[in-house]
């Protein structure tokens, strides 16, 4: 099992996943997809923490991942409840319907 891991590849993968999620958030209009993309971004953040922790051989990175996990769980539960309400009230999952907060 004596393998060497390249130091930056994990971070690079995290960056790519994060940006893919970001593109999704910016382009999709379906709010379910937006929530999914946010999950992808959160997960990419967790990956970045874990790879950084591996690089420094510290447990802190993994602790942070656990926190992110907890936060993601809370966020998803509230977010999905909001999606249900939105679908109930507007009969739509299009975020562009929710543009009434403009000036």
């Amino acid at each position: 099992m004596m393998t060497h891991i390249p130091p930056n590849e994990g971070l690079l993968l995290a960056a790519i996943l994060f940006l893919l999620g970001l593109i999704g958030v910016m382009t999709r209009r379906n709010i379910i997809y937006i929530l999914m993309c946010i999950e992808i971004m959160l997960n990419a953040c967790g990956l970045a923490f874990v790879s950084a922790g591996a690089k420094w051989m510290q447990a802190d990175g993994q602790v942070m991942f656990i926190f992110i996990l907890a936060m993601a769980a809370a966020e998803v539960s509230v977010g999905l409840a909001l999606i249900l309400q939105m679908h109930n009230q507007h009969k739509s999952v299009d975020v562009n319907v929710l543009n009434q907060l403009k000036d």
């Binding site: 099992m1 004596m2 393998t3 060497h4 891991i5 390249p6 130091p7 930056n8 922790g53 591996a54 690089k55 051989m57 510290q58 447990a59 993994q62």
Partner: peptide, 10 residues
């Protein structure tokens, strides 16, 4: 670019 290092399981 840092040096690659041996894998340590945490």
């Amino acid at each position: 670019k840092g040096s690659s290092q041996p894998l340590t399981v945490i």
